[in-house]
Design a protein around this nucleic acid. Sequence first.
DNA 1: CGTTACCTGAAA
DNA 2: TTTCAGGTAACG
Length: 275
Amino acid sequence: MPELPEVETIRRDLEPRVVGRTITAFRVAEDSGKPVPVVKRMDEASFREAVSGASIRFLERRGKYLVFGLDSGLSLVVHLRMTGALLYRRPTDPPDRYLRAVFRLDDGHELRFADLRKFGGLWLVESFDEVTSALGPEPLGEGFSRELLEAALKDRKAPVKSIILDQRRIAGIGNIYADEALFEAGIDPRRPGGDLSVEAMLKLFGAIGKVLLAGVESRGASFRDYLDADGNTGNMQMYVRVFRRTGKPCYNCGTLIERVKVGGRSTHFCPSCQR
DNA sequence: CGTTACCTGAAA
DNA sequence: TTTCAGGTAACG
């Protein structure tokens, strides 16, 4: 569910609360008697052993991943996939549905990992790039440029939307912000990347930054499941221009927003404004 | 490259 | 009953 703005919102909220804290315990929830396979690439007992007693030195984001840097030198990496949430709670707070794992902290709080669809995961690795090495540059960082976007699109026949969704090209764009950026840039999501003019690519470059920043400022988009670290919804769903607005009039021209499949993903666009 | 699988629940 | 879902890995 969460894309770059949603994950960044969680990171910003959690950072001042967890940096300097020590993880005192870890447990995996049981689902009809069986532990949920939320810990990746490592058995659960080793994971519990290694995180227990570790202090959190920093909390960073890479694409849609959260990275907790531990004083042991290890990195705890979290991906929320479609329906994951990382909730900052007290043990006495009401239970959260779909709880998969809990980290207890030395100040009495706990971090609860809840995930309806069980796609999310936790990794404990020597270096976080063991998990994130295939990711492209951060679209809001120094490493992303107009030239880099042009290189990603040049000579490609894949739809431009599929290219900007490819995490190996740019890290952090998901279905909401891809549709919103393409609307902002006035580009039909189905157009082959290689067909875009230099001008269109420049527009898209600006639009990606604009919609991601708007998402962060709005604390993310809650269309269905997304909740921040306090269990609250974001606000970006109130400001989207095309995403899930199928059959509603375009705010620019009044033409009805259409939905098509692009690269297997639902895609929303204005057939008149986007060419 | 596009399609399918992973999993659960809400909406059509 | 069927379709759809803020993602990605593994297919062919």
